[in-house]
Design a protein around this nucleic acid. Structure first.
Length: 268
DNA sequence: AACGGCACCTGGTCGC
DNA sequence: TGCGACCAGGTGCCGT
């Protein structure tokens, strides 16, 4: 589900909502997620203060007094903000982070593709350490993209969705950015010119920033903490569309098993 | 080393 | 109304 803008929206909302920053307890409700929730998380996190909450790629990271708590929302992960301790659990609730003042962050995940991990050192964390550069950082520029495209036979869409190269871009924003930069999703990475790379980098930054401003994209499951959907969906140009702005029919192509929407006329 | 495809899950929708 | 097929925003891992 959530790509960078949705995760960014959730992180902002958590930062705004949480008043008490001391964890009372971490409660496991259903440990079965992408990785089984470690039974030692409750004892490791108990009474810890949360120093900061930030995003890295599609991961939400809580920096604690000692160590880090790392959450991934998978496809259908939702964080609910609850102020009633006795609110009954719902189907697919997986864990609670309960604070000293009684407020609770409750994680719910229908498809169980999400995860939560605890680690001492974030630089060694097996998932986070593999991540490539942040697309909104200055290090992600046309020269970087050109360099990583070199000699790559894979479609450019696969490349920008590869989290070890650049992190946070998923299927929706890959389609949108390729449309804006007028590049076909299945174009071979190595055939991109420096000019193509510049357009694509700019398009990625543009579409991500724009979506963050609108609170992310809601297709089906995504909601921010307050239950509000994101409004970016209304601004999608190709994803899920049937007709391009130019009047041409939008084509759908399976690339790497994912539906790729593009305009045969506008994208070269 | 690089790449394609599968697996992990649940639920919604569509056609018969 | 029921049932099977197919679809969904992610990604680690396996075989080639």
């Amino acid at each position: 589900m959530p790509e960078l803008p949705e995760v960014e929206t959730v992180v902002k909302a958590i930062n705004k909502s949480i008043k008490s920053r001391q964890i009372n307890k971490f409660k496991i409700i259903n440990s079965k997620l992408r990785w089984t929730i470690s039974s030692y998380i409750p004892s490791k996190t108990k009474d810890n203060y949360i120093k900061t909450i930030y995003r890295r790629g599609k991961y939400i990271i809580f920096k604690l007094d000692i160590g880090y708590l790392i959450i991934h929302l998978g496809m259908t992960g939702i964080i609910k903000f609850i102020n009633d301790k006795d609110l009954p659990y719902e189907k697919h609730d997986h864990f609670d982070i309960e604070f000293k003042d009684g407020y609770i962050l409750r994680y719910n995940d229908v498809r169980k593709f999400g995860s939560v991990h605890y680690c001492k050192n974030i630089d060694n964390q097996f998932l986070v350490k593999k991540l490539g550069c942040e697309p909104l950082d200055d290090t992600f520029d046309k020269f970087y993209l050109k360099r990583v495209c070199q000699k790559k036979e894979i479609p450019i869409k696969n490349l920008i969705m590869n989290q070890t190269i650049v992190t946070g871009i998923g299927n929706i924003y890959a389609c949108e950015a390729l449309f804006i930069s007028e590049i076909k999703p299945h174009k071979k990475s190595k055939s991109l010119t420096l000019d193509n790379c510049e357009k694509l980098v700019n398009a990625i930054k543009f579409v991500l920033k724009k979506s963050i401003r609108d609170g992310g994209t809601t297709l089906k499951d995504f909601k921010s903490l307050d239950g509000k959907p994101g409004y970016f969906k209304q601004k999608l140009l190709v994803y899920g569309k049937q007709l391009c702005g130019c009047g041409n029919e939008i084509k759908i192509l399976k690339i790497g098993g994912r539906s790729s929407f593009y305009c045969n006329k506008c994208q070269k």
